[in-house]
């Protein structure tokens, strides 16, 4: 499934909320400020559970504040933001788009695509903020001033395959702890970085928005509400304004507010746990608990089928 844009947004907005918190590590604040691109790539990386706290544990006793260390720290914090997105939205995809998973369709569920395009609209101001552009979901970047002179549709896949080959050189495909019983061919399919999300579906959702899908995936689950105080904090920090909103109260309120507000509250919880652990204020055990390390993002499909059946019974 995809939700690339939502992952980016949750990590960047969680970082904004964290920088508003006086308890958040000044070292981490500097890392985020200096290396926003590292945070962005961290926010779209998997398996953070395995690496975030062990890395912080290693660094906290031997931190020299070098540029490279700071850049890695920003990446790690983005990784924590990724987990906040996963833990908030993955169950929602299954609840709101159960049929997609039951039938085993390829590619991302409609729910995740709609989350992404609405997030692009809300958090990145219709794509006009970095790392995007207002034309990012137009067919082949139509509307971008350089798209007239560069054949985007003819070269985009070449860039993709070259990029994946470059990334493959940093990977090893058969390792002691995974994929023990499969052939290299299966490993290539599973482990190499494939491009499986059809951008046409994003473009379609963004430019020919389906009201039924908006209702099902965005409105009814309450994906995003600009008036939620924690979202207000992130937005004001983004625009370099002073929020003047009580953070603790905003976090408490978020539990009954939009899903995006809940994701930011969880992101803030993870960022603060990382900060306190890095500063030596809490143990690894407490850090793991507060970061929900090892907790699955979702239940089994059977669980969601039963939930849907129960919901149907209630409706009947």
């Amino acid at each position: 499934m995809s939700e690339h844009i939502t992952h980016l947004a949750v990590a960047e907005d969680s970082a904004r909320v964290a920088t508003y918190d006086p308890e958040f590590s000044p070292v981490m604040q500097e890392c985020i400020r200096k290396f926003p691109n590292a945070l962005r790539w961290g926010s779209v990386s998997r398996s953070g559970d395995m690496f975030i706290l062990p890395s912080l544990e290693k660094w906290r006793d031997n931190w020299n504040n070098t540029d490279r260390e700071q850049e890695k720290m920003a990446y790690i914090l983005g990784w924590a933001g990724h987990l906040a997105g996963d833990r908030t939205f993955k169950p929602v995809f299954r609840i709101t788009d159960l049929a997609f998973y039951v039938r085993g369709y390829p590619g991302p569920a409609h729910a995740s695509i709609y989350h992404d395009v609405v997030t692009l609209h809300e958090t990145y101001d219709s794509g006009s903020r970095k790392p995007f552009h207002k034309s990012v979901l137009s067919p082949y970047l139509k509307g971008h001033p350089a798209a007239e002179v560069v054949p985007v549709e003819k070269i985009e896949n070449t860039f993709a395959q070259s990029f994946a080959n470059d990334l493959a050189r940093f990977r090893k495909y058969l390792t002691p702890d995974r994929n023990k019983d499969v052939s290299v061919i299966e490993n290539v399919g599973e482990e190499s970085q494939r491009f499986y999300v059809e951008l046409d579906r994003y473009t379609d959702a963004y430019t020919r928005t389906d009201p039924a899908r908006m209702r099902k995936y965005i409105i009814e689950p309450n994906l995003y509400d600009r008036t939620d105080p924690i979202i207000q904090i992130a937005r004001k920090v983004k625009f370099n304004e002073k929020p003047d909103i009580d953070l603790k109260e905003a976090i408490e309120l978020s539990s009954s507010q939009s899903l995006y507000a809940q994701a930011l509250a969880l992101g803030h919880q993870f960022f603060l746990a990382c900060s306190e652990f890095f500063q030596g204020n809490i143990s690894m055990e407490e850090a793991r608990t507060r970061c929900r390390t090892g907790q699955p993002h979702r239940e089994s499909l059977d669980y969601y089928i039963k939930q849907a059946e129960m919901q149907e019974n209630v409706n009947d």
Binding site: H4, R46, Q193
Partner: peptide, 30 residues
């Protein structure tokens, strides 16, 4: 403008890819 376009081509490819898989055997080097 052209540099931004190449950046956006890569950004769109990242959306298509969804996420990075880290190298489990040596994440610091990765």
């Amino acid at each position: 403008d052209v540099a931004e376009l190449f950046h956006l081509i890569r950004q769109r490819n990242l959306i298509r890819m969804h996420t990075f898989r880290p190298e489990f055997t040596g994440v610091e080097l990765w």
